[in-house]
Write a protein that binds this DNA or RNA. Structure first.
Lengths: 118, 118
DNA sequence: GGAATCATTCGACGTCCGTCGAACGTTGTC
DNA sequence: GACAACGTTCGACGGACGTCGAATGATTCC
Protein backbone atom coordinates (compact mmCIF):
# COMPACT_ATOMS: atom_id res chain seq x y z
CA UNK A 1 0.00 0.00 0.00
CA UNK A 2 1.20 3.48 -0.74
CA UNK A 3 1.89 5.34 2.41
CA UNK A 4 -0.55 7.54 4.21
CA UNK A 5 0.71 7.79 7.73
CA UNK A 6 -1.34 10.07 9.86
CA UNK A 7 -4.01 12.60 8.97
CA UNK A 8 -3.49 14.20 5.58
CA UNK A 9 -0.82 16.83 5.73
CA UNK A 10 -2.12 20.31 5.09
CA UNK A 11 -0.25 23.47 4.24
CA UNK A 12 -1.30 27.08 3.93
CA UNK A 13 -1.68 28.42 0.43
CA UNK A 14 1.02 30.79 -0.67
CA UNK A 15 -1.19 33.80 -0.18
CA UNK A 16 -2.34 32.61 3.20
CA UNK A 17 1.17 32.69 4.61
CA UNK A 18 1.17 35.33 7.34
CA UNK A 19 4.22 37.39 8.11
CA UNK A 20 3.64 37.28 11.84
CA UNK A 21 3.41 33.51 11.82
CA UNK A 22 6.55 33.13 9.77
CA UNK A 23 8.44 35.43 12.09
CA UNK A 24 7.11 33.55 15.08
CA UNK A 25 8.08 30.25 13.51
CA UNK A 26 11.59 31.57 12.94
CA UNK A 27 11.86 33.13 16.39
CA UNK A 28 12.96 29.94 18.09
CA UNK A 29 16.52 28.64 18.34
CA UNK A 30 15.61 25.05 17.52
CA UNK A 31 13.43 25.95 14.58
CA UNK A 32 15.98 28.40 13.28
CA UNK A 33 18.64 25.73 13.42
CA UNK A 34 16.21 23.43 11.66
CA UNK A 35 15.62 25.92 8.87
CA UNK A 36 19.34 26.45 8.42
CA UNK A 37 19.90 22.75 8.13
CA UNK A 38 17.11 22.45 5.59
CA UNK A 39 18.75 25.28 3.71
CA UNK A 40 22.14 23.58 3.58
CA UNK A 41 20.71 20.19 2.74
CA UNK A 42 19.17 21.24 -0.51
CA UNK A 43 17.30 18.01 -1.17
CA UNK A 44 15.12 17.03 1.73
CA UNK A 45 15.72 15.77 5.22
CA UNK A 46 13.83 13.25 7.28
CA UNK A 47 12.96 14.05 10.87
CA UNK A 48 15.09 11.35 12.39
CA UNK A 49 18.18 12.23 10.39
CA UNK A 50 18.39 15.67 11.94
CA UNK A 51 20.82 16.19 14.81
CA UNK A 52 18.70 18.15 17.26
CA UNK A 53 19.17 18.94 20.93
CA UNK A 54 15.57 18.00 21.70
CA UNK A 55 13.53 14.84 21.93
CA UNK A 56 11.69 13.33 19.02
CA UNK A 57 8.22 14.60 19.96
CA UNK A 58 9.58 18.10 20.39
CA UNK A 59 11.24 18.01 17.00
CA UNK A 60 7.99 16.82 15.47
CA UNK A 61 6.20 19.70 17.14
CA UNK A 62 8.63 22.25 15.74
CA UNK A 63 8.32 20.81 12.27
CA UNK A 64 4.57 21.11 12.58
CA UNK A 65 4.88 24.76 13.53
CA UNK A 66 7.11 25.41 10.54
CA UNK A 67 4.74 23.52 8.28
CA UNK A 68 1.61 25.32 9.45
CA UNK A 69 3.37 28.65 9.13
CA UNK A 70 4.14 27.85 5.50
CA UNK A 71 7.89 27.66 5.90
CA UNK A 72 8.43 24.02 4.93
CA UNK A 73 6.94 21.30 2.80
CA UNK A 74 6.54 17.74 4.02
CA UNK A 75 6.65 14.78 1.67
CA UNK A 76 5.85 11.27 2.80
CA UNK A 77 7.91 8.33 1.63
CA UNK A 78 7.07 5.13 3.39
CA UNK A 79 7.40 5.68 7.09
CA UNK A 80 9.57 8.74 6.65
CA UNK A 81 8.74 12.36 6.10
CA UNK A 82 11.08 14.48 4.08
CA UNK A 83 11.02 18.18 4.78
CA UNK A 84 12.18 21.00 2.56
CA UNK A 85 12.01 24.77 2.54
CA UNK A 86 9.29 26.58 0.61
CA UNK A 87 11.82 28.97 -0.86
CA UNK A 88 9.76 30.07 -3.83
CA UNK A 89 6.61 30.78 -1.88
CA UNK A 90 8.44 32.63 0.86
CA UNK A 91 10.40 34.64 -1.67
CA UNK A 92 7.24 35.52 -3.57
CA UNK A 93 5.41 36.52 -0.44
CA UNK A 94 8.17 38.23 1.54
CA UNK A 95 11.05 38.97 -0.82
CA UNK A 96 14.45 38.82 0.80
CA UNK A 97 13.20 37.72 4.19
CA UNK A 98 14.44 34.15 4.18
CA UNK A 99 17.71 35.11 2.57
CA UNK A 100 18.46 37.74 5.17
CA UNK A 101 17.65 35.35 7.99
CA UNK A 102 19.82 32.61 6.57
CA UNK A 103 22.62 35.02 5.76
CA UNK A 104 22.52 36.33 9.30
CA UNK A 105 22.93 32.80 10.50
CA UNK A 106 26.10 32.14 8.59
CA UNK A 107 27.51 35.54 9.48
CA UNK A 108 28.74 36.50 12.90
CA UNK A 109 26.17 35.62 15.49
CA UNK A 110 28.55 35.32 18.41
CA UNK A 111 31.47 37.55 17.54
CA UNK A 112 31.23 40.88 19.35
CA UNK A 113 33.73 43.46 18.23
CA UNK A 114 33.81 46.68 20.21
CA UNK A 115 31.26 48.30 22.46
CA UNK A 116 28.98 51.25 21.82
CA UNK A 117 26.95 51.64 24.97
CA UNK A 118 23.94 53.90 25.29
CA UNK B 1 16.43 69.58 35.97
CA UNK B 2 17.01 67.72 32.78
CA UNK B 3 14.86 64.70 32.58
CA UNK B 4 15.75 61.33 33.96
CA UNK B 5 12.51 59.53 34.42
CA UNK B 6 12.96 55.96 35.47
CA UNK B 7 16.06 53.80 35.66
CA UNK B 8 18.63 54.64 33.02
CA UNK B 9 17.62 53.29 29.64
CA UNK B 10 19.93 50.61 28.38
CA UNK B 11 20.26 49.12 24.93
CA UNK B 12 22.18 46.18 23.57
CA UNK B 13 25.35 46.95 21.67
CA UNK B 14 25.12 46.51 17.95
CA UNK B 15 27.01 43.24 18.07
CA UNK B 16 24.94 41.97 20.95
CA UNK B 17 21.74 42.13 18.92
CA UNK B 18 20.54 38.55 18.57
CA UNK B 19 18.64 37.39 15.54
CA UNK B 20 16.27 35.22 17.54
CA UNK B 21 15.35 38.11 19.80
CA UNK B 22 14.77 40.45 16.88
CA UNK B 23 12.55 37.91 15.19
CA UNK B 24 10.68 37.33 18.41
CA UNK B 25 10.27 41.06 18.90
CA UNK B 26 8.85 41.35 15.39
CA UNK B 27 6.63 38.28 15.73
CA UNK B 28 3.78 40.14 17.39
CA UNK B 29 1.00 42.05 15.64
CA UNK B 30 1.15 45.05 17.95
CA UNK B 31 4.92 45.34 17.85
CA UNK B 32 4.96 44.89 14.10
CA UNK B 33 2.42 47.65 13.72
CA UNK B 34 4.56 49.73 16.03
CA UNK B 35 7.67 49.17 13.94
CA UNK B 36 5.81 50.06 10.77
CA UNK B 37 4.60 53.28 12.30
CA UNK B 38 8.11 54.13 13.47
CA UNK B 39 9.25 53.44 9.94
CA UNK B 40 6.74 55.80 8.37
CA UNK B 41 7.27 58.51 10.94
CA UNK B 42 10.89 59.06 10.18
CA UNK B 43 11.60 61.41 13.03
CA UNK B 44 10.59 59.94 16.33
CA UNK B 45 7.32 59.15 18.01
CA UNK B 46 6.27 59.42 21.62
CA UNK B 47 4.49 56.56 23.27
CA UNK B 48 1.26 58.40 23.89
CA UNK B 49 1.02 59.74 20.35
CA UNK B 50 0.76 56.25 18.90
CA UNK B 51 -2.70 54.95 18.02
CA UNK B 52 -2.57 51.46 19.48
CA UNK B 53 -5.29 48.92 20.20
CA UNK B 54 -3.86 48.20 23.64
CA UNK B 55 -3.66 49.94 26.97
CA UNK B 56 -0.84 52.19 28.02
CA UNK B 57 1.01 49.64 30.17
CA UNK B 58 0.85 47.09 27.37
CA UNK B 59 2.26 49.56 24.87
CA UNK B 60 5.04 50.37 27.28
CA UNK B 61 5.78 46.68 27.61
CA UNK B 62 6.01 46.19 23.86
CA UNK B 63 8.31 49.17 23.48
CA UNK B 64 10.52 47.68 26.15
CA UNK B 65 10.68 44.39 24.27
CA UNK B 66 11.64 46.20 21.08
CA UNK B 67 14.21 48.25 22.94
CA UNK B 68 15.85 45.30 24.67
CA UNK B 69 15.93 43.39 21.40
CA UNK B 70 17.84 46.25 19.83
CA UNK B 71 15.15 47.26 17.38
CA UNK B 72 14.48 50.79 18.61
CA UNK B 73 16.17 53.67 20.34
CA UNK B 74 14.51 55.66 23.10
CA UNK B 75 15.26 59.31 23.71
CA UNK B 76 13.93 61.18 26.70
CA UNK B 77 12.61 64.70 26.38
CA UNK B 78 10.93 65.95 29.46
CA UNK B 79 8.22 63.55 30.43
CA UNK B 80 8.08 62.04 26.98
CA UNK B 81 10.05 59.29 25.34
CA UNK B 82 10.67 59.45 21.65
CA UNK B 83 11.27 56.17 19.91
CA UNK B 84 12.99 55.54 16.61
CA UNK B 85 14.19 52.55 14.63
CA UNK B 86 17.82 51.43 14.82
CA UNK B 87 17.98 51.13 11.05
CA UNK B 88 21.74 51.30 10.73
CA UNK B 89 22.49 48.76 13.41
CA UNK B 90 19.90 46.33 12.17
CA UNK B 91 21.08 46.73 8.60
CA UNK B 92 24.69 46.19 9.64
CA UNK B 93 23.85 43.15 11.67
CA UNK B 94 21.17 41.51 9.53
CA UNK B 95 21.29 43.07 6.07
CA UNK B 96 17.94 43.26 4.36
CA UNK B 97 15.95 41.86 7.24
CA UNK B 98 14.17 45.01 8.33
CA UNK B 99 13.57 46.09 4.76
CA UNK B 100 11.96 42.80 3.83
CA UNK B 101 9.73 42.87 6.88
CA UNK B 102 8.62 46.43 6.24
CA UNK B 103 8.14 45.80 2.54
CA UNK B 104 6.00 42.78 3.35
CA UNK B 105 3.88 44.99 5.51
CA UNK B 106 3.09 47.49 2.82
CA UNK B 107 2.52 44.76 0.23
CA UNK B 108 -0.46 42.45 0.19
CA UNK B 109 -0.97 40.96 3.59
CA UNK B 110 -4.64 40.22 3.18
CA UNK B 111 -5.13 39.78 -0.56
CA UNK B 112 -5.31 36.11 -1.45
CA UNK B 113 -5.32 35.41 -5.15
CA UNK B 114 -5.84 31.80 -6.14
CA UNK B 115 -5.45 28.59 -4.18
CA UNK B 116 -2.86 25.84 -4.48
CA UNK B 117 -3.92 23.30 -1.94
CA UNK B 118 -1.83 20.16 -1.57
C1' DG C 1 2.41 -13.07 11.11
C1' DG C 2 5.61 -10.84 14.21
C1' DA C 3 9.07 -7.60 15.42
C1' DA C 4 11.47 -3.45 14.56
C1' DT C 5 11.46 1.29 12.80
C1' DC C 6 9.71 5.81 12.03
C1' DA C 7 7.04 9.79 13.20
C1' DT C 8 3.10 11.44 15.25
C1' DT C 9 -0.37 12.28 18.92
C1' DC C 10 -1.73 12.47 23.76
C1' DG C 11 -1.37 14.06 28.40
C1' DA C 12 1.11 16.58 31.56
C1' DC C 13 4.23 19.91 33.52
C1' DG C 14 6.48 24.36 34.15
C1' DT C 15 7.51 28.60 32.01
C1' DC C 16 7.01 32.59 29.31
C1' DC C 17 3.93 35.99 27.13
C1' DG C 18 0.26 39.50 26.35
C1' DT C 19 -3.03 42.01 28.73
C1' DC C 20 -5.03 45.03 32.03
C1' DG C 21 -6.12 48.07 36.44
C1' DA C 22 -4.00 50.38 39.97
C1' DA C 23 -0.20 52.70 41.99
C1' DC C 24 4.11 55.24 41.54
C1' DG C 25 7.72 58.75 40.32
C1' DT C 26 8.80 62.71 37.08
C1' DT C 27 7.99 66.55 34.65
C1' DG C 28 5.57 70.57 33.28
C1' DT C 29 2.03 74.19 34.26
C1' DC C 30 -0.89 77.22 36.84
C1' DG D 1 2.96 74.26 46.24
C1' DA D 2 -0.90 71.81 43.89
C1' DC D 3 -2.60 69.64 40.00
C1' DA D 4 -2.59 67.44 35.51
C1' DA D 5 0.09 64.80 32.00
C1' DC D 6 3.22 61.21 30.81
C1' DG D 7 5.21 56.80 31.02
C1' DT D 8 6.72 53.17 33.87
C1' DT D 9 6.40 49.48 37.36
C1' DC D 10 3.77 46.23 40.14
C1' DG D 11 0.61 42.48 40.74
C1' DA D 12 -2.48 39.44 38.75
C1' DC D 13 -4.87 36.72 35.35
C1' DG D 14 -5.61 33.59 31.30
C1' DG D 15 -3.59 31.64 27.50
C1' DA D 16 0.04 30.03 24.60
C1' DC D 17 4.56 27.83 24.29
C1' DG D 18 8.46 24.37 24.70
C1' DT D 19 9.50 20.17 26.65
C1' DC D 20 9.24 15.35 27.66
C1' DG D 21 7.61 10.17 28.50
C1' DA D 22 4.37 7.05 27.09
C1' DA D 23 1.17 5.42 23.85
C1' DT D 24 -0.52 5.06 19.01
C1' DG D 25 -0.64 4.18 14.01
C1' DA D 26 1.90 2.89 9.71
C1' DT D 27 5.35 0.89 7.24
C1' DT D 28 9.13 -2.29 6.32
C1' DC D 29 11.69 -6.47 6.83
C1' DC D 30 12.46 -11.17 8.32
Amino acid sequence: MVGVMGPELTFPDRDDIRLVEVLHALADPVRLQLVRLLDETDGAVACGQIPLPVSKPTASHHLKVLREAGVVWAREVGTRRYYSLRRDDLEARFPGLLDSVLAAGTAGEGAPTAGTRS
